[in-house]
Design a protein around this nucleic acid. Structure first.
Lengths: 191, 191
DNA sequence: TCAAAACGTTCACCCAGGTTAATAAATTAG
DNA sequence: CTAATTTATTAACCTGGGTGAACGTTTTGA
């Protein structure tokens, strides 16, 4: 998959042999819309690279879903918490569209860390990116009102607004669907 | 500093020579209460290990401080965003007590990545920890009410409640001092 | 040691977002 | 193509936290 090769090159420069070796370790999987790649209680054994489609991760607290983030083709995602600690996950990973993923197991990744030390760097860069993403979301949650967060999302990640049903967006923004509707109405009037 | 040596050992196992080499690269600095280790606009050139004392990092948006996190002796902290990108920082790092820090420059760290490749792992583990911490804070912000966040803080990080002035705690919780006062009053009554 | 500054509490009023429930619109599956 | 399901909107009412201002209390530093 050319796209993945280019993506990897943004992190570390691999020889063609190294990349091929890496690629052989991956498991490709096609998943229908609304299927789960991970469920609460399971141990997250893989990191996922999205070749096509779209996923979200969410947690369930007191019967209520809280969407943490959306990812589209070209992104890596894993429940780091569980992936790193190999403890049961507290989150669900669910496809929002028909999705094609490349799966990289923890075992393989650790093997790669040893066999091709450059992958330590890859692991570090992934973690750093993940950290910056998490902090950015933190910031929008603390600094912005729900309306501002929505505007921000439209600006920064239009794909989300285009491709993701609104009640998931509400959940991501930390509000309820009626509130998002009110916000949208307000915005439509002031234009 | 024995404490730092032990702390490092939790991340990577270094020979005494390696540790000594590492330690020599650090700059030790004593800082008074309420001094800044980093200001908005500056480039964050160092990671800080707290030998003694306590710091917070915060951002200023529309004239208002938003405290992101508190750190005590035994922790590492850096504005990763600026440290990694070497772009001007958006945050302040400020001591809340008389503090002693060991400073590790980005240059040195990159030198260590090359000279002692184990440090790549150190860098990765630091980023992973930072990520998990940021995600945990995310969670408490989305899932809990202000009162629950405060109770959570008392439980999980009693040091913060003991050592940090309340208005900084309010800022960390994402509320205003009067609200924290109300919450405390409510809790005092229901006991 | 004591005046100034920083910090914490309380009050009255306001508002964004939650809740519940009804209804409309859009999607999906058979 | 249509019934069932999912998703989105609206309305009425409620509530936790914001705001500004006044007033104690504690800490600080000269």
């Amino acid at each position: 998959m050319a796209a993945l090769k280019e993506r990897m090159a943004q992190f570390i420069s691999l020889t063609s042999e190294e990349y091929d070796y890496f690629y052989q370790q991956l498991t490709i999987k096609k998943v229908k819309k609304k299927e789960k790649l991970l469920q609460e209680g399971e141990i997250c054994t893989h990191a996922f690279y999205l070749l096509e489609g779209c996923i979200r991760y969410y947690t369930v607290v007191e019967g209520e879903e809280h969407t943490g983030q959306f990812f589209f083709e070209g992104s890596w995602y894993s429940d780091y918490d569980s992936f790193l600690s190999q403890m049961p996950s507290k989150q669900y990973i669910e496809t929002l569209e028909k999705t094609k993923v490349a799966m990289l197991s923890k075992k393989t990744l650790e093997h790669l860390y040893t066999k091709i030390p450059k992958f330590e760097r890859f692991g570090r860069l992934m973690a750093e990116r993940a950290y910056l993403g998490a902090r950015k979301k933190n910031e929008t949650l603390t600094l912005l009102s729900a309306e501002e967060r929505y505007l921000h999302l439209i600006q920064q990640r239009p794909k989300v607004v285009e491709r993701v049903p609104q009640h998931y967006i509400a959940s991501y923004l930390g509000i309820k669907p009626p509130s998002l509707s009110r916000i949208r109405k307000r915005l439509a009037q002031n234009r």
